[in-house]
Amino acid sequence: MAEGDAEEREILAFVQALKRLHGYDFSQYAPASFKRRLRALRARCGADSIAGLGRRLEREPAFLRQVLSGLSVPVSEMFRDPWVFQALRRDVLPVLASYPRIHIWQAGCAHGEEVYSLAILLQEEGLYDKSQIFATDFNDVALEEAAEGIYPAASARTYAENYLQAGGRGSLSQYFHARYERIKFEESLKRNITFAGHNLGTDGVFAEVQLILCRNVLIYFNDTLQDRVLRLFRDSLVHKGFLCLGAKETLARTPVERDFECFDAQARIYRRGSA
């Protein structure tokens, strides 16, 4: 137990140092998975303790990049949970089509896999030219990578299968170029995407949107931060706007539960009510 308590203290000190030195605040992350990532980072860096990671951060500012990529960005895939993208294509986009301009917020876009999935969806439904996607993350390193749109070629097969299961109208390969061990998505897919820094823990409403995608982000937050973010989403959506969460995330038992109605239970798509 004493050993565990010592580690808890080191984690707390590390989180405080990261906030003090660089302004990144992980204090409201769900502790168990955060601890696991921190331990993995410690092992990967060959540090003897989490306190050792903190000391390195103090004397080596460039270490931040490695810390951030280890701590904040889960790996995703394109068209992950294909049935969700199928539901968006079939049931949500036709509603969005009635707006003269479509504004979409992808919150916590990480490496951007879902942003490009969304752009392809809009393109194939003939809606992309009147759409604007705001892809935000608080992690500048992830945003840079998302804006590049480069992924390992080894993933292409899974992505392509997901794309077809999601109702893709062509072949995913028409949207990227394969080179060496990498695939790079077409520049033109980015034409209506704005990548921007936004911190769900501290920043506020920046646009009024008709659809928010935020999948598998809230599971990493504690209750306080989750509730803050859900209120932010509520306040950013137009009347009857859509919120799409991760397959195991829910508005049930949250403070905004009554502000939304369930639109598609399996795909976890909710719709802003009039409350």
Partner: peptide, 18 residues
């Protein structure tokens, strides 16, 4: 498809970490 974890306050947590 998710990792399952137990928090100190004996509640479940999920992650999609690698």
């Amino acid at each position: 498809g998710y990792h399952l974890l137990v928090e100190q306050d004996l509640r479940f947590a999920l992650s999609v970490d690698q």
